[in-house]
Design a binder for these strands. Structure first.
Length: 424
RNA sequence: GUGGUUGUAGCUCAGUUGGCAGAGCACUAGGUUGUGGUCCUAGGGGUCGCGGGUUCAAAUCCCGUCAGCCACCCCA
């Protein structure tokens, strides 16, 4: 019986893996350029972490987690997002034990959400994310945004838009929520079914609904900016000013709301062309209450997560060419059994000398071997038959020019290194 | 969880009114007994997603189911 990968889970095959390695390398290089350090946390956490962290009322926790009991009866959950686990690890390992101690961490890791798959949406997806703890100033928000945007720029992504908004600190957010409910309640009948329900559970989300009925009802709603405390207002203005100064183009979007309960103050989302309906490629925000909520000191934090599958989709749609670099390959070809036997020893020597080699041990025709070498994009073929065995030499054939030369075995390694050097 | 749509060779797909399961590409071999890419010739490869039903006869019609894709919800 044939067994497929579970719904919404995807194999990343050799033909694609090099792209992953490339964008992962860009992510690491860029994060380290900003002096963020990599952290790797477990794929599973106690379920309570996400309930408390992401929020009991958020959709992600209520209906999208992979949750199960282990054999001891503990409830575990596959991580649905990156921040909560990093905060837990930072607290547990005393990385942010004291106020004023700064920790800047990044990760590249899979997340799991039980959803119906569609374009740009899977049950396992991967994110590059970064979290900065200990600094409440808007400079830290902007450093995160700069890192994120630099990452996209280095990957070659062109069509993208940064949306930004502020919901203010806790009291500001609550005040705005109440005001919005007061504004929308009389119009409840005009809202879509989903939003009528959200009016109680998560009214802020009605702001960024796609339903035209909701958009019409929301049109005259008061903006969050009117409910920000003085301090929150100053914070947000400073963020915008710093973005201006660093030449980052953004759009103030008063309807931008994000799905995690822990966000306070600044929040942002980057959208990209070519992604279909799920056009968010990454998002982030400040979460000044989260560390304390999860049992740490009152340490502020800010960070982002960026979806790598969606980045690759966007790069493809925008026809961005990633440059593939691979090691030049030498393909050993044997005319007969004796040559094949000799090449088995030779290939080991060449590999130990640091030269990537391949050969076909099955005794097929030379034509078939050459064809295979061509298919695998070998740079050089090393051909040995009866004549070469007797003269202790090998033919080296350059597959792109077709030129061929005879080289003695004693000089083989240096000759190959010479030929391959300009190909790296 | 809801809706739409598509499942035929490794891949992309055709298949008429229900009447022998097809093409292109890819693969293997030969043309060339020591040389790839181009070309020519031949060959291999199928649970027509799966299960049931109608029929003399089903890839084709009906019912169910599973999966992929797309959209809603939500999010990266």
């Amino acid at each position: 019986m044939k067994i497929n990968a579970p719904r919404g889970f995807q194999d990343i095959l050799p033909a694609q893996v090099w792209k992953w390695q490339m964008i992962e390398a860009i992510a690491r290089d860029t994060a380290e350029l900003y002096h963020f350090q990599e952290i790797r946390t477990p794929v599973v956490e106690y379920s309570e972490l996400f309930h408390r962290g992401v929020g009991e009322s958020s959709d992600i926790v209520t209906k999208e987690t992979f949750t199960f009991n282990d054999r001891g009866g503990e409830s575990l959950t596959l991580r649905p997002e990156g921040t909560a686990g990093v905060v837990r690890a930072a607290i547990e390992n005393n990385l942010i034990a004291q106020e004023g101690v700064r920790a800047k961490l990044f990760y590249i890791a899979p997340n799991f959400r039980y959803e119906r798959p569609q374009k740009g949406r899977l049950r396992q997806h991967h994110q590059f994310g970064a979290e900065a703890f200990g600094i409440a100033e808007p400079e830290q928000d902007v450093e995160c945004i700069q890192l994120q945007m630099d990452f996209y720029r280095k990957c070659g992504l062109n069509e993208l838009e940064l949306n930004i908004n502020s919901l203010g600190d806790g009291p500001s957010k609550q005040g705005y929520r109440d005001a919005l409910v007061a504004f929308l309640s009389p119009k409840k009948g005009q809202l879509g079914e989903d939003s009528q329900r959200r009016l109680e559970s998560n009214p802020l989300r009605i702001l960024d609904s796609k339903d035209p009925r909701d958009q019409e009802a929301v049109a005259g709603a008061p903006p969050a900016s009117g409910y920000l405390s003085d301090q929150s207002q100053r914070h947000f203005q400073r963020v915008c000013q710093l973005l201006d100064e660093s030449g980052i183009v953004y759009r103030l979007n008063p309807n931008l709301v994000r799905g995690f309960d822990y966000y306070t103050e600044t929040l942002w989302e980057v959208t990209a062309g070519g992604l279909g309906a799920q056009n968010a490629i990454g998002g982030g925000g400040r979460y000044d209450n989260l560390v304390q909520l999860l049992g740490g000191r009152a340490v502020p934090g800010v960070g982002f997560g960026s979806g790598l599958e969606r980045l690759l989709i966007a790069l493809e749609a925008q026809q961005v060419e990633l440059k593939k670099v691979s090691q030049p390959l030498v393909y050993l070809i044997s005319q007969n059994d004796a040559a094949r036997q000799a090449n088995l020893g030779l290939i080991r020597q060449l590999r130990q000398a640091g030269i990537a080699c391949e050969m076909d041990p099955s005794g097929r025709s030379m034509k078939a071997q050459l064809k295979q070498a061509d298919r695998e994009q070998a740079t050089v073929c090393l051909i040995r038959g009866q004549a070469e065995l007797e003269s202790d030499s090998a033919q080296l054939k350059n597959l792109s020019t077709g030129q061929q030369q005879n080289v003695s075995i004693s000089q083989l390694v240096s000759a190959l290194i010479n030929i391959l050097k300009p190909c790296k």
